[in-house]
């Protein structure tokens, strides 16, 4: 460096840049070695026919128990509605219950425009874009009722797009 830096400025920049490097190392370790990348699977789907994907056939929507403490939740998003499938009585589901400590895989695809999918209060926070499957696996270990909100603008009824996830003991 041809430029002159004050001694204190050098210390400051070393401290500041050092902190940024530490942040990056911590994040990189989590992301690359522990697999906590933000969701990014690049799995594509036909945006005009999401049912062409097994997971988004009407009968496969909603909560499915895979094994004792493993669940899959498939959701079809459209303006302005999350489709969690239908219950035994044929009623639309917008509330699901999961036992505490379960590992849950959320898979979401959109039939129309861009949506968001946030299980508020958890790290399940994904963009849902036409042509892609958004998915994230998480362990739900805190009991309570979580609001699922569409947190990406999708049109005039955007704020009416929601559901709830209950984690019970």
């Amino acid at each position: 460096m041809i430029m002159h830096l004050h001694k204190y400025e050098k210390i400051w920049l070393i401290f500041g840049i050092g902190s940024l490097i530490v942040f990056l190392v911590v994040l990189g370790y989590g992301a690359f070695w522990q697999g906590t990348h933000p969701q990014s699977h690049g799995v594509t789907i036909d945006p005009n026919n999401i049912e062409s994907n097994e997971a988004f056939k009407p009968e496969n929507l909603g909560l499915t128990k895979v094994s004792d403490d493993k669940y899959i939740v498939n959701i079809a998003a459209s303006a302005f509605f999350y489709d969690f499938g239908k219950d035994e009585e044929g009623k639309t589901v917008n509330h699901i219950r999961i036992p505490k400590g379960s590992t849950v895989l959320f898979q979401v695809a959109t039939k129309d425009v861009v949506h968001g999918f946030h299980v508020a209060g958890t790290n399940v926070n994904m963009m849902v874009e036409p042509g892609y499957v958004s998915s994230l696996e998480t362990v739900m270990d805190k009991p309570g009722t979580y609001t699922v909100v569409c947190n990406e603008y999708c049109g005039l009824g955007h704020h009416l797009m929601y559901a709830t996830v209950e984690v019970y003991e």
């Binding site: 946030h118 508020a120 009722t145 609001t147 947190n151 704020h159 709830t164």
Partner: peptide
């Protein structure tokens, strides 16, 4: 967890 770019909504209600 409150979303941005959203009009007033009580969603499904509840504490959150």
């Amino acid at each position: 967890g409150a979303p941005r770019r959203s009009s007033y909504s009580e969603y499904a209600g509840g504490d959150q």
